[in-house]
C-alpha cells in the first residue's frame, strides 16, 4: 500500500502484527492463501511436501497484519497466524515504508 503522505494520526493507530505458521504436511497446494493474502506475505515454495504439493513460503514476513484470511480460506487447515505484541516486534512499522514490490 502506497501513501501519498503519511497520515497525521499514524502514531495513534494500532496495527496488529502477525506471524504466519504453515503446517506443510497438510497443504495440497491450491494457492488460495498466496493469491488472496491482502499483504502478499506468501509465495509458492519450489520445494515439495511429502505428498508432492508445493506449500507456501513466507516471502514478506514483516507485512503480516494478522488478518487471519489465509487461516480461513485455506481448505486444508494448513496455515494460521498468531498475533505478536509490539514490544516483541523488532520489525519496521509497515506504515512507514512503501510496499517493496
Amino acid at each position: 500500500m502506497e501513501f501519498w503522505r503519511i497520515p497525521l494520526d499514524v502514531e495513534e493507530i494500532q496495527i496488529t502484527r502477525g506471524v504466519v505458521h504453515i503446517l506443510e504436511e497438510r497443504c495440497k497446494g491450491c494457492g488460495y492463501c498466496i493469491e488472496f493474502c491482502p499483504r502478499q506475505v506468501l509465495a509458492f515454495s519450489s520445494r515439495f511436501n511429502e505428498r508432492g504439493y508445493h506449500p507456501p513460503v513466507i516471502k514478506n514476513p514483516d507485512d503480516c497484519v494478522n488478518c487471519h484470511y489465509c487461516e480461513i480460506i485455506c481448505p486444508e487447515f494448513a496455515i494460521y497466524s498468531i498475533e505478536i505484541s509490539e514490544q516483541d516486534d523488532k520489525r519496521p512499522d509497515p506504515r512507514l515504508h512503501s510496499n517493496p514490490r
Binding site: K28, C30, G31, I72, I73, C74, P75, F77
Partner: peptide, 23 residues
C-alpha cells in the same frame, strides 16, 4: 474442532468445501 486423526480430508486440491467447512 477437527478430528485431527482424520485429516487430511478427501477433498481435492482447490476444492472449496474445506473453506466453507473451516468458516
Amino acid at each position: 474442532l477437527l478430528r485431527e486423526d482424520r485429516i487430511p480430508h478427501i477433498w481435492c486440491p482447490g476444492c472449496g468445501i474445506g473453506t466453507a467447512f473451516s468458516s
